[in-house]
Simulated assay, not measured.
Amino acid sequence: MEQLELKALNGRYAKPDEVISYAVENLGVSKIALASSLSIEDQVLTHMLLQVDPGARIFVIDTGRHFQKTYDLMEQTMLRYKFNYEVYAPESKDIEELVSRLGPNFFYESVELRKKCCDIRKVKPLKRVLSTVDGWICGLRREQSPTRQDMEIFEWDEGNSIYKINPIVHWSEEEVWAYIKANDIPYSHLYSTGFRSIGCQPCTRAVQPGQDVRSGRWWWEDPDKKECGLHLGGHAPA
């Protein structure tokens, strides 16, 4: 895929399974990976990708602060689809230094410190795995957040200098749930208790009916700025 082809690709492919097949065929299985947070979106993409190639690379960033139900779902998904996740974790020395200096809950004190925590626990491990691929698949959807409304299916990730593919970027939450139910895909039961977006346990809470999908993530911050740093570098040519 040449970067100049992205606009044409976004006009040509819309069905997620076709998007995934195109990406795998053109980037190669070992040079593309799905980033999974075990969200409903990533569970849908795990199901789709493993149907295209049972040996596909799927990775999880283990921040060390996930809900136990997230780890339980990892195991359930591995048993269901008979594969193993690639797991990436933060550097222990980074965690040790920061928590020793600022305490275990420093990320509540300011946006700057919260982003520092995300950088150590998420962004740095992500960069390690992305250095091994030419493209990554993500479960981002436009309706999730004001910061995601301009995203396209095929993008160039400027920050990581690789391709970024968002196969269900145009899907609604209802479409995601319909696909999960139709294909009996395992999902976190936290969704049954009011959660609509699940990240690290200290930074995620259940939401009230009618609230924004990601309103339970970093709920103390401005919704127009609520990103952890994983998805700030992608764009598609105009």
Score class of each variant (00 low, 15 high):
Lys124Val: 08
Phe154Asp: 04
Val99Gln: 06
Arg80Leu: 13
Glu75Met: 09
Met151Pro: 01
Leu9His: 05
Lys225Asn: 00
Trp156Val: 10
Glu75His: 15
Ser21Pro: 05
Arg141Ile: 02
Ser36Asp: 03
Val87Asn: 12
Asp62Val: 08
Asp94Ser: 15
Ser100His: 13
Lys226Met: 03
Asp184Pro: 11
Thr46His: 08
Trp220Met: 13
Leu50Gln: 04
Phe67Asn: 03
Ile153Lys: 08
Arg142Pro: 02
Asn166Gly: 02
Lys225Asp: 00
Gly199Asp: 04
Trp136Val: 01
Gly139Met: 02
Leu79Ala: 13
Pro16Glu: 01
Val129Ile: 14
Ala23His: 08
Leu4Ile: 15
Lys127Thr: 09
Arg196Ala: 12
Thr147Ser: 07
Pro125Met: 01
Ala89Asp: 12
Cys117His: 12
Arg57Lys: 03
Gly216Leu: 00
Tyr71Phe: 15
Glu174Ala: 11
Ala236Glu: 11
Gly55Ala: 02
Trp219Gly: 11
Ser161Met: 13
Thr204Lys: 02
Trp218Arg: 02
Asp184Lys: 15
Arg196Gly: 08
Met151Ser: 06
Ser37Val: 13
Ile20Pro: 09
Ala35Arg: 14
Thr193Asp: 10
Asp42Ile: 09
Asp17Asn: 10
Tyr187Gly: 12
Ser131Glu: 14
His189Trp: 07
Ser161Pro: 05
Leu190Trp: 07
Met48Pro: 02
Asp53Ser: 05
Leu9Cys: 03
Ser92Phe: 15
Glu155Ser: 03
Glu143Asp: 09
Ile40Lys: 12
Cys117Asn: 06
Trp156Lys: 02
Gly210Asn: 06
Phe83Thr: 07
Tyr88Leu: 14
Ala35Pro: 01
Gly233Ser: 08
Pro223Glu: 08
Arg101Asp: 09
Pro90Gln: 10
Glu18Tyr: 06
Gly229Asp: 06
Leu38Asp: 04
Glu86Pro: 03
Ile168Leu: 00
Pro167Tyr: 00
Lys116Trp: 08
Leu9Ala: 06
Asp134Phe: 14
Gln43Asp: 14
Leu45Ser: 02
Arg114Glu: 01
His189Cys: 07
Ser172Val: 10
Phe107Asn: 02
Gln149Leu: 07
Gly55Glu: 04
Pro186Arg: 03
Tyr85Asp: 05
Asp222Gly: 08
Gln201His: 15
Asp224Cys: 07
Trp156Leu: 04
His66Arg: 12
Ser197Gln: 09
Val99Tyr: 11
Arg142Thr: 09
Met78Gln: 15
Leu79Ile: 10
Ala56Lys: 00
Glu143Ser: 13
Glu158Asn: 04
Ala14Val: 13
Lys15Ile: 11
Lys15Phe: 04
Arg101Pro: 09
Ser39Cys: 13
Asp134Tyr: 14
Met1Tyr: 13
Asn105Lys: 12
Arg148Cys: 00
Leu98Ile: 14
Thr77Asp: 05
Gln144Asp: 06
Ala56Ser: 13
Gly11Leu: 15
Asp157Tyr: 00
Ile20Gly: 06
Lys115Glu: 06
Glu18His: 11
Lys93Pro: 04
Leu49Gly: 01
Glu173Phe: 03
Asp17Leu: 10
Lys127Ala: 06
Gln76Ser: 14
Pro237Trp: 13
Leu4Lys: 10
Glu174Cys: 11
Leu6Gly: 06
Ser197Phe: 03
Cys200Glu: 15
Trp177Cys: 05
